[in-house]
Design a protein around this nucleic acid. Structure first.
Lengths: 199, 199
DNA sequence: GGCTAAGCGGACCGGGCGGTCAACTTGTTA
DNA sequence: TAACAAGTTGACCGCCCGGTCCGCTTAGCC
């Protein structure tokens, strides 16, 4: 399937649209309206649907981009000298980026795109590798799984969302608490086993 | 203001309505529709509005009930012998209850009811007292605030909501991680200061 | 049993939203 | 520059939802 390049104005609009949509989704969640997105991008509503057949597709395009870039980051950290620090650096970057676009969209966008599902799977596998290396290095307690870490990764953004005028780096505080809960020192039994699948 | 007692059928419908609404809100969040709630309760839509002038009022009534019952629980634990265990018990009960109705409603329900705001304030003060006692007993690290704990209290329910077929007690696993992050042993600096207000 | 007011129900209204379409504009290419 | 395809636009459609309203039902009381 060969696709001819977009006309120049269409390419420009596509970029404007993605940026506007990311902001609107970040501000209003799945309630952001197509009309608002179009207005913010300075285009007509019809143009939105020409680029993305449905609202879900638009959201999926944005999330896919974030997911893939996060995978790239995780991959680049996979061979760092300090495996523990590598994981914690990754979590910090992930939490920081989620200030802009929460991952709960992975859940909200109901029937997930196939492409997005695959990208998510790649991200998860890469993170799991980071976690296992960090555990082997003794930086992370042995009784958590990669999936646990993935789930806890979303915590700082979520917590901060409850604080109206939050300082821009407040998420670091809660990330620090989460990480302290992942450390081997002072770990208590966790109780129920980790789930096998999520989101 | 003296209010005559409800007619018997009206009283019955009111409790059916509250139960149905709690379930619908738990399942669909703020997107739960009045029509669905009415159907589940087996009453007409008009009846819903006779009991609760707006959808927000209905939600507020439910949340108010939960908040007050949680305050009562916290209060009853405020003089327990083991202050650390008292706090952890409270967090467990709070997390367990949130499996049914997430506290994010405190945020979602836009302009919060005055009555609800006061109830929330009482709950927060009671929790803060629990936290300070637990800190004095050395069970909780000194650099977290009561508000931090309040914010982290919502984490287990949120995390579990990403796991489709989650075991009914899975939240205990993530509560254990959260609590381990609150313990003094192995605590690392938190970075940014705690916020002064939330939700 | 009969009266009355509290309570009930569902048709209805207005508004907002996702998505469609056909007329119009514009980038591209020869 | 001419001609065409690609792109844009906003009016429009159907749907759903919160909330209203008025005719009907029924509990409570004598």
């Amino acid at each position: 399937m060969v696709t001819r390049p977009l006309r120049s104005d269409a390419a420009r609009n596509r970029v404007l649209l993605l940026a506007a949509a990311a902001e609107e989704f970040a501000a209003a969640g799945m309630n952001a309206s197509i009309a608002d997105i179009a207005r913010r991008a300075g285009v007509g509503k019809g143009t939105v649907f020409r680029h993305f057949p449905t609202k879900d597709d638009l959201l999926a395009a944005i999330v896919l981009d974030r997911v893939e870039s996060l995978t790239a980051l995780a991959f680049s950290l996979a061979s760092a000298d300090d495996a523990g620090q590598a994981l914690f650096d990754f979590l910090a970057e992930a939490a920081g980026r989620q200030q802009q676009l929460d991952f709960s969209f992975l859940r909200d966008s109901g029937d997930i795109n196939d492409q997005l599902r695959e990208a998510r799977e790649r991200l998860y596998l890469t993170i799991i590798a980071l976690v296992e290396r960090a555990q082997a290095a003794g930086a992370v307690r042995a009784d958590v799984t990669g999936l646990d870490v993935i789930l806890m990764m979303c915590v700082p953004a979520h917590v901060v969302s409850f604080v109206p005028g939050a300082a821009p780096d407040l998420w670091r505080r809660y990330l620090a608490m989460v990480i302290d809960g992942l450390r081997p020192e002072g770990a208590h039994p966790l109780g129920p086993p980790s789930p096998v699948e999520a989101v």
